Amino acid sequence: MVLLQTPPWAGQADPEASTLGDKVRFLSDPAAYVPVPEQVVTRETHMSWVFMAGDRVYKLKKPVRFAYLDFSTLDRREAACRAEDLLNRRLAPDVYLGVVPLTLSTAGLAISGDGFVVDWLVVMRRLEENATLEAALRGGWLRPTQIDRLATTLGTFYAHAPRVRLEPESYVVTWQKAPAANCRALLDARFGLPFGCVERIAQVQRRFSMQRSALLRERIRARRFVDSHGDLRPEHIWLREPVTIIDCLEFDPKLRANDPLDEIAFLHLECERLGGLWAGERIRRHLARALEDDAASGLFLFYRSHRAMLRARLSIAHLLDPNPRTPEKWPRLARVYLKLAAVDAGRLERILGRARKERPRA
């Protein structure tokens, strides 16, 4: 006979009694960790709290629910933590160290302690903050050899990433609907963004998705789409040896189902925004053959302009939060992205115009 012993904390601690504020206060205290660090540096993001304690980083997901993700329950947060740990080992195998419980007993909260599991933490190795691609671009110390190593890493990743099956017609329809969705969000009168600029960009994107729908379908039929990183920004790229890329989009595989050319277009956009267009161009040239990047088709510009519009939309959406952090930042950033998207749309319009002139008359 097996006797099931009652845990010592049973009936003595309520797992629902620990609020997000309680957890943040606990994890902000050096005494929460073994060994005890000199200090804990905390960062808040849209979806998480991050605690940098000594040579480790602990990430706590907020119990939030948005249209594109749901972390509202303990089970969902655990699943998201485990997915984050697993997926990010693809490009940062020595950084992600596992998932541990945050527990509550009558003695209080503890990391991997005795008691009820009240949340889950992703544990990471702490990296040098000034060693990112973003820091290198802002600081002006980025070298071509570093970019070449990054491009090689990305090329290897895309070559071995699992291929994703998509339905071509549904995919094309999604692209054709995207400009209107971005317009609806960006042209909210509360934001005061330039109406004509947004409309013009969306119009060019719609034209491309209609006139080049066969090209979009062919990318799918050629099995170009992979389970990608999903959020390939310079702030997520560490120029160490080996090149390390963290913080992929773990919460929705659909958002990681990308044409690698689209993802490189996004990185190219971000490099230009940070003053490093040359770096984005170097990565693009390095990967052009592998990704079948035909500049004359306009596909790269289409992807890039869409990413810029999407980033503008995500930036301005911060103002819809009940208590947005740094509210002055988001309209300014949205306008930067719209300016980049407008330049791309102008170039794309010229490509579409040339194609129309070259089309033989019946």
Rank of each mutant, 00 (worst) to 15 (best):
S305I: 00
K329R: 15
P194S: 14
L20F: 02
H236S: 03
A214G: 09
E199C: 03
R313F: 08
L86H: 13
A345V: 00
L310D: 00
E235A: 13
W278V: 06
V100M: 12
S48P: 05
V64I: 10
H268D: 15
L104K: 00
V99I: 13
E128V: 11
S305Q: 00
W330H: 14
K177Y: 03
S213D: 11
R143D: 04
P327R: 12
K177F: 04
G155R: 02
M1T: 11
R90V: 13
V226H: 07
G346D: 10
D344W: 00
L348T: 00
A92Q: 00
D321I: 13
R256F: 05
Y33R: 09
A312L: 11
P93F: 09
T6Q: 14
G113I: 04
Y171D: 13
T174H: 12
G108A: 09
R126L: 03
R76F: 04
R149D: 04
C81F: 02
R335F: 05
Q39C: 15
S305P: 01
L186N: 08
I220E: 08
N88Q: 15
A180D: 14
L333W: 06
A107C: 02
V100H: 06
V40N: 02
C248M: 14
D247M: 09
E218D: 11
H160A: 15
T326V: 09
W141R: 14
T6G: 14
K23M: 03
V226Q: 04
D29K: 13
P360E: 06
A345Q: 01
M124T: 05
R200L: 10
A10S: 07
R82S: 11
L150V: 10
A13W: 01
A136F: 04
R43F: 05
A83T: 15
P162C: 02
P15D: 00
A312F: 15
L232C: 01
G346R: 01
E199I: 01
H268Y: 14
V118W: 00
L269S: 04
T132A: 12
N323I: 10
D55K: 05
K357E: 15
A185W: 10
A135M: 08
A31D: 14
K357Y: 12
A17G: 05
A189W: 09
S228I: 15
A107T: 02
T145G: 07
L261T: 06
L216V: 07
S72R: 14
G113H: 06
L166V: 11
F195D: 15
F302E: 02
A13Q: 02
G11I: 05
A107H: 04
H236F: 01
R359C: 10
A317R: 15
V123E: 09
D262S: 03
M124N: 10
E349F: 08
G192A: 13
A161T: 08
S170P: 08
P322R: 13
S72D: 12
Y337R: 03
A308D: 01
P8V: 03
E134G: 03
L216E: 03
M210D: 02
T132M: 13
L87M: 15
W49K: 01
T73C: 01
R273M: 15
S213C: 12
Q5N: 08
F66I: 14
K59E: 06
A317D: 15
